[in-house]
Design a binder for these strands. Structure first.
Length: 605
DNA sequence: GCCGTTTTCGGCCCGACTGTTTTCAGTCG
């Protein structure tokens, strides 16, 4: 067979004459939405140190946020001249994006970095140090780096500055020390486990009428920094006392009547808020966020002559209307209740006002598991055990999809094993076929050279083919995208699994060119997987939302390697919900007849 | 710098907590 094509016609080689160096060419081609967002965030922070107008700064921050939640590459929007249609991006920022996309540089940022030493941005990472303090250190003591700041603090040179004292000086030293061992963000699984333990503790405290999760945890963001918990109580002071003196607490970051925050022995941070039950709705809305969503809520309140806070709505005379439930709070603003997963200021406010919030998919809508492993590859139990687990969850369909043999680290199946496995699948079908439909599939590796691990004759015999990347994820964008496109061009491939291969909380995945992956998915009719493992959640909410808007079917798979793995479905569903998906857009909510019909049309079942 | 159910100009979210202060600025979410 002929080798795969890694250099499509838009390869940088053809453009060499247009640019000074290959490097700048690379910058030009590779400027992703996340990288563009980073640039605008950098601008915003530098401008803060400069004490620039807050609303200008806010505009850059909004633009950055908007770019991050854009499912489509900004470069494609730029080509179509549609950048200014993105909320938060106007003429000036659109021009800056275009400059970045065409030259890989931004004159405005370069001038800004002449005026404000960019190393000052490092100081902002210290808790308690913001732009004002950073500017103060720079302008009075000519401090521009973390090391210089630490030295000055040790020498006691900070305490004499206006607004500083011995305590602030010590806080800065502590903060710098904490930076080195700063706890990373938690996976959702870890965050929920920790949160449930603390909620149980809170609910057992005297006077606590209600305790609930809030913050990014309740919004099911893919990773969680601090845990935010809310409490309804009429007597918060003793609760806060008990909280900060809990034996798991290493350090108290702040303690007040309405709010306290601590760092635990293992570095995790927890913050609790308290209000009386009459204000619980306002508090829960506030603490759930997101920040951007809250700003929108407060703008709405303001337009009606109110001020919205965590206690309730106040009129211009300061009369407080307490808000006991979220439903009441949203209704007062003329909105339907918004599911927490949507509260990111990505259009949910308008949808709630116009009564067109989606009816989001739920865990109970799911009745299929289409990506599982058994002892035929790296799974922990037999096919029959996995089938039994699926039946006990009430599922109607399970696909057994063991690994192909490419990966050295797992025991994959050689093509000849597939035939032997089919015999075992048949035997299990004899025993379980009345209760559940068992599909014989495989998770076939997309090799580093872009070819699939099994020949077409083998793929054709499988009920379901999942294609996925495991190795060589760091290949350049053109190359790794070409691998995926090559896999999708094979008509036997039904599902593209965990497309980027990222590992949460912090290993980035492949640098896929989604501008090519979406059309390839559309052309092939294959489904995009949301891998439900809390370490993957791949594809992510932003890309899933865009894919679904293009009509690409989505499937939520736990990729279970043991029965317990199937419990992770809830994390996958949370990604689908954050992507605004309704049940019909998710394959594993379908009836088995619909699934079989889909597979039949694809020619593989 | 962005944006329009009061606006194409004049607005742009709100309060708790800390550490420094004799009434408040800075940070945070």
């Amino acid at each position: 067979m002929s080798g795969p094509i890694f250099f499509p016609e838009n390869s940088s080689i053809l453009f060499l004459t247009d640019c000074d160096t290959l490097l700048s060419m690379d910058e030009k081609k590779h400027m992703t939405n996340a990288e563009l967002a980073d640039v605008f965030e950098r601008i915003a922070n530098l401008m803060k140190i400069q004490d620039e107008m807050v609303f200008k700064i806010r505009a850059y921050e909004r633009a950055a946020e908007s770019l991050r939640s854009l499912g489509e590459e900004a470069s494609l929007l730029a080509q179509r001249g549609e950048l200014t249609q993105v909320p938060g991006i106007g003429k000036a920022i659109a021009e800056k994006i275009e400059e970045l996309l065409t030259t890989g540089k931004l004159g405005f940022l370069e001038r800004l970095e002449q005026e404000v030493p960019p190393t000052l941005l490092d100081l902002l990472r210290i808790p308690g140090v913001g732009p004002r303090k950073a500017a103060l250190f720079w302008k009075t003591l000519h401090i521009t780096t973390l090391a210089e700041l630490e030295k000055a603090a040790r020498e006691g040179r900070l305490r004499s500055l206006p607004g500083m004292g011995e305590k602030s000086e010590k806080a800065i030293l502590d903060g710098i020390a904490a930076l080195a061992q700063r706890s990373q963000r938690m996976t959702l699984a870890r965050a929920w486990t920790l949160a449930n333990r603390w909620l149980e503790w809170l609910r057992a405290q005297p006077g606590v009428e209600r305790a609930e999760p809030a913050g990014s945890l309740r919004r099911w963001k893919e990773t969680v920094g601090d845990l935010d918990l809310v409490v309804a109580t009429r007597d918060s002071a003793p609760l806060m006392e008990a909280f900060v003196h809990h034996p798991d607490v290493k350090r108290v970051l702040g303690q007040g009547e309405n709010k306290s925050s601590v760092e635990l022995q293992d570095g995790a941070r927890i913050q609790i808020w308290a209000q009386p039950p009459e204000s619980f709705g306002a508090l829960w809305m506030y603490a759930t966020g997101s920040k951007d969503h809250n700003v929108r809520m407060r703008e709405l309140a303001q337009r009606q002559g109110w001020s919205l806070s965590e206690r309730g709505l106040a009129d211009e005379q300061g009369n407080l209307r307490r808000i006991a439930s979220e439903e009441e709070g949203y209704a007062a603003l003329g909105l339907a209740w918004i599911p927490p997963e949507l509260r990111e200021d990505r259009g949910e406010v308008e949808a709630a006002r116009e009564g067109r919030l989606p009816h989001l998919v739920e865990v109970r809508d799911i009745h299929m598991e289409l990506h599982t492993h058994s002892t035929w590859s790296d799974g922990a139990v037999s096919i029959e055990e996995m089938v039994r687990a699926a039946v006990s969850r009430g599922y109607e369909v399970i696909a057994i999809t063991d690994h192909s043999s490419y990966m050295g680290i797992v025991r994959g199946m050689k093509p000849e094993d597939v035939l032997r496995q089919r015999e075992e699948v048949e035997a299990v079908r004899q025993r379980w076929g009345k209760q559940i439909l068992i599909l014989h599939g495989a998770e076939v590796d997309i090799r580093a050279d872009g070819t699939l691990d099994y020949p077409d004759e083998v793929l054709a015999q499988l009920d379901l083919v999942i294609a996925s990347l495991h190795a060589s994820l760091r290949q350049p964008r053109e190359q790794i995208t070409a691998r995926v496109l090559n896999a999708l061009s094979n008509p036997h491939v039904d599902i593209l699994a965990h497309p980027t291969g990222r590992l949460l909380p912090d290993r980035a995945g492949a640098d896929l060119d989604w501008g090519q992956v979406y059309p390839a998915l559309q052309a092939s009719g294959a489904a995009l997987e949301i891998n439900a493992s809390p370490y993957r959640l791949d594809a992510d909410d932003v890309h899933v939302r865009h894919a679904a808007s293009l009509g690409i079917p989505v499937v939520i798979n736990t990729d279970a390697h043991a029965p317990v793995g199937m419990e992770e479905m809830v994390f996958g569903v949370s990604v689908a919900r954050r992507a605004w998906l309704t049940a019909p857009q998710v394959i594993n909510t379908w009836t088995r007849e619909m699934l079989l019909e889909w597979l039949r049309k694809r020619g593989s079942a």
